[in-house]
Write a protein that binds this DNA or RNA. Sequence first.
DNA 1: GTCTATATACAGATAGAC
DNA 2: GTCTATCTGTATATAGAC
Lengths: 205, 205
Amino acid sequence: MPRKTDKRIRLIEAAKVLIHQQGFNLTTLADIAQEADVPLGNVYYYFKTKEAIGIAVIEKWASEWTERLAKWEDIADPLARLFVLIRHGLDNLEMVARFGCPIGGLCQELGKQGGPLADLAAKLLHDVLQWTEAQFRALGFEEKAAEYGLTITSTIQGMFLLTHTFKDPKISEKQAKGLEDWLVKMIGRKPEMAAVKVEELAYAD
Amino acid sequence: MPRKTDKRIRLIEAAKVLIHQQGFNLTTLADIAQEADVPLGNVYYYFKTKEAIGIAVIEKWASEWTERLAKWEDIADPLARLFVLIRHGLDNLEMVARFGCPIGGLCQELGKQGGPLADLAAKLLHDVLQWTEAQFRALGFEEKAAEYGLTITSTIQGMFLLTHTFKDPKISEKQAKGLEDWLVKMIGRKPEMAAVKVEELAYAD
DNA sequence: GTCTATATACAGATAGAC
DNA sequence: GTCTATCTGTATATAGAC
């Protein structure tokens, strides 16, 4: 039996996909309504404005990532956690090649416009950045944690942008390998990946 | 005496600025016409469609960068050339913090849409990428030139995205320093910057 | 070449019957 | 809660006088 929030969820999911694929400004409410199989006029019962849908979509990304990052905290080795983050980015490279990084795309597009959407999008990336910093602190880096966290996050975003621009997943594969090598060399050991369970690597749906 | 192409040039310049600041899709022909001080209807005498303006703007960026990269070829030391590229990116950090990297922004936004605009935007980044690869080859790297070129270009794009997202020029400053340190360590020496003339560092207008 | 007026299309948003 | 019909604004693009 469809619950009260059923259509709302379908609308958010449809908007999440379409905004990733087309960008926020090019995605119309009619697009979203059609993809969610909801009549256009009915959309406004669930969301007062287009911006409200944008907010809901970004909050959906935020909750997914909060959950994902929290789950990875179960991994014993902080270095292995960083490896899992990097490898997670390699799971959907075909998507990244076609449409770019969902988070990076939102930050780029909405960052220019300012307002609540820009702030929320920035918070998405900020959460990831903070998490990476925390891993470096757990590895014993106090002073350099912020810099290294920035390097990881920035490198991943850079490789995604080039992967998207040149439609070439190999770019991310090569750059990710380089990033892992950098980590191993800097920490002085390899990650304890044996203890990482498969479920913790799976892409949450 | 205003030449035949005077308005055309004003329109391209206005579009170049506005598209950087607002993105391509959010920039209207009315915006561009007003900024260039040209009546809206007259715009269509110079450009048949909005896409045609987009093409002209990207070609303008392309010619600027072609000239800039060619000028930097005059620098004797290829390592110094790479340093000049990195430091060029630090010249307009307030702009980058507000509106992101012009090239990266175009690649991100237009890459999703496909078509001629996406291809032309990708070529912008491709030209820079190729140039960086050439510098590594000039430094004696044959096999690794492609990988290192990718690393430089990708790192710069990543730091610009985070600088824009968090509105913090310090991010680029710190990451650029890290990139320079990586280069110095890898090449095994510092760049010959003494021979780099001030004019070669100046931002072409 | 220039510019006003306007055609056309479609976006976000609302009214109101059901 | 749902959905059709529609309002209103605005974007791209064109027509045609000057």
